[in-house]
Design a protein around this nucleic acid. Structure first.
Length: 573
RNA sequence: GCACCCAUAGCUCAGCUGGAUAGAGCGUCGCCCUCCGAAGGCGAAGGCCUCAGGUUCGAAUCCUGAUGGGUGCGCCA
């Protein structure tokens, strides 16, 4: 049930009738006809731009179309007024009964708000994908929350979603990890060790070194790197992935699959992907132009194997092999995305940190080439998170081993608050995360404000239960504040589709705040006007009519928080 | 030098595949409340949507250019 879609259907059908009857020229494209909430509630409940969109192709004046359309729409029982306004807007006012119907619809249909716009298309959302070299930090946390919420949103809107984590376990950084663990291993054997540049000094590796000792004893002590490197690398990577899985679980993030970069090496998968590009004439040997401006100090022209990414929208061609003939990091990424395409996904979404922005075009070029333009790739970049506590900014530095981790954040404010706050900005805007404000119980804190609305509703419901008042799905609406809430509820299915289409889960968080705000306003009216309270002392039937609206609010808040991965609370503590 | 992202109220930010008089919170100012339906309420002021062009019936939104900020730019991932 989507009221806006219903009314749009009515408008479209009416326009088609007008075309059939000759009131409008036949064959007009109605795709751009929209039915939206008006910016100003005084304009009515809904507005359509039909007359303005059609004026030019129909070669008629907007107001003439609007007048004719208004007359016909007014025949529909749902519409009590249709007024032409401004340059040709048609403002529609709906019958009061419509809004009661919305409430009844929410209560009667647990899937209210779900959409089939995804039409079951298979989409792969890749997120987090942090190097398996240490615990997740706040930056990863934002990516994890964003990706998880986006995945849930797309699921809610009718896509078949797979959540995947790409393990960068094939590059040089896992060798560094192995050497760092080896140092901790020696340390566990009582040796004094020094962590030089290019190793990870973080404490989290101490127990990994001890675990390694427990496993292999002193077998690697004093041994050459070639003896132990491969084994220690596997051991350490596994330990780090356990750590990362634990971190993700503490946030409530569960992946459907983990995809190993290493599995691409020595299995012919990289070769197969590059061969595919080669067959398309997109691989060649060549020398890249040096970047303009600031030149790398050791720049010298070298012949490399290049991917002609410029044929698919990139700015320069990109190397897939280093000058020594080994693969660049780009090659396994191509192979990984080739694999995604071959697994049959209809759409791909990658979620990166903003520092990977320069990587987007070549990745899109690769997917475009590999799928012959059939599979869209959307790359969402998550901007930096700045942490604050007591007004003091927190710094993070992975190299120094003093970064603020995901578990630091989750332990302090909990997974629900972490997740909600991470979604109170759109992904491409930087986010300030203030520990103190995040847990503050006041209306200035959006997390609290939304949760509190739900808690208030459940508080009343508990009183209903105590008083033995039966619930009814038939609401009685009378006050403007009640209609405002009902209108906001009616927007929910539309909001879901807008958010899903744009891959912007933050819109859900903002919507929930607005819904909570309208609800609190109604609640406050109950302070001055007891007749607007949900629980009407001694009047069971009136109470039953009043409680339907807040129950519907709770349904939508719970659904919305569910998409964000936040647990709706039933009481504040 | 080039690419990408960003620029909206004093501050932090929303703003719908282009729509009407651009919104919210904080802060400021005014009024009310001190009743556990508690963790305040109501209202007001506050804007050249960075700037200049363009497309359009209509632009914060799309295009071009400029300015300011962020990120990145072969042999790190």
């Amino acid at each position: 049930m989507n009221l806006f879609a219903d009314i749009r259907t009515l408008v479209i059908a009416t326009l088609e009738t007008m075309m059939a009857e000759g009131a409008l020229p036949a064959g007009l494209d109605l795709a751009n006809v929209a039915v939206e909430p008006p910016r100003d509630a005084a304009h009515g409940d809904m507005a359509t731009n039909a007359a303005m969109v059609l004026a030019k192709p129909a070669k008629l004046k907007p107001r003439d179309i609007a007048d004719a359309l208004a007359q016909r729409l007014a025949d529909d029982p749902r519409i009590v007024a249709a007024e032409v306004a401004g340059p040709g807007f048609l403002n529609l006012r709906l019958a009061d009964g419509i809004w009661a119907g919305v409430i009844a619809g929410v209560l009667g249909d647990p899937s209210f708000g779900r959409s089939d716009m995804g039409a079951g298309k298979r989409v792969l959302v890749e997120y987090v994908s942090a190097n398996p070299t240490g615990p997740l930090h706040v930056g990863h946390t934002r990516g994890a929350v964003f990706g998880d919420a986006l995945a849930a949103l797309l699921d809610y809107a009718g896509w078949d979603v797979t959540r995947e984590y790409y393990i960068n376990d094939g590059g040089a950084q896992v060798d560094v990890l192995a050497r760092s663990v080896y140092l901790r291993y020696l340390e566990a054997h009582g040796q004094a060790v020094a962590f030089e540049d290019g190793t990870y000094p973080g404490d989290y590796l101490i127990e990994v070194g001890e675990a390694l000792k427990a496993k292999v004893g002193d077998a690697y002590v004093g041994q050459d790197e070639q003896v132990w490197l491969a084994e220690v690398r596997d051991f350490a990577t596994e330990a780090m992935m356990d750590l990362i899985r634990t971190d993700l679980a503490s946030l409530g993030v569960t992946m459907d699959s983990f995809y190993s970069e290493k599995s691409l090496y020595g299995t012919g998968k990289i070769e197969a992907a590059i061969d595919d590009l080669h067959a398309k004439g997109l691989i060649y040997e060549g020398v890249l132009e040096p970047p303009k401006g600031k030149l790398p100090e050791d720049w010298e022209p070298r012949e490399q194997t290049l991917f002609r990414s410029t044929a698919h929208g990139d700015d320069v061609d990109r190397p897939v092999k280093k000058s020594d003939g080994s693969w660049t990091y780009f090659a396994p990424d191509i192979a990984y995305h080739y694999d995604k395409v071959q697994r049959g996904y209809d759409e791909l979404i990658d979620i990166f940190g903003a520092d990977h922005g320069g990587y987007v075009k070549r990745m899109k070029a690769a997917v475009s080439a590999l799928s012959e333009g059939q599979v869209p790739l959307d790359v969402k970049l998550c901007q930096l998170v700045k942490l604050f506590k007591n007004g003091e900014p927190f710094k993070m530095s992975k190299r120094a081993g003093t970064f603020v981790t995901l578990s630091d954040v989750v332990e302090q404010v909990g997974p629900d608050v972490t997740r909600f706050v991470m979604l109170t900005r759109k992904n491409d805007a930087p986010l300030d995360f203030d520990f103190d404000k995040a847990v503050e119980q006041s209306k200035d804190n959006p997390v609290f404000y939304v949760q509190y609305a739900n808690a208030r509703i459940h508080s009343v419901l508990r009183k209903f239960a105590e008083a033995g008042i039966p619930l009814s799905d038939e609401p009685v609406l009378e006050d403007a504040a009640e209609f405002a809430v009902a209108r906001k509820l009616a927007e929910w299915p539309r909001l879901v589709e807008i958010a899903a289409r744009n891959h912007e889960p933050h819109r859900v968080a903002f919507y929930l705040y607005e819904l909570a705000s309208d609800f609190h306003a109604l609640w406050n009216r109950g302070n001055d006007t007891p007749a607007l309270r949900f629980l009407q002392d001694g009047n069971t039937s009136a109470s039953a009519g009043k409680i339907a609206l807040p129950r519907a609010v709770s349904v939508v808040i719970s659904a919305g928080l569910g998409i964000l991965g936040v647990t709706p609370v039933e009481e504040m503590r």
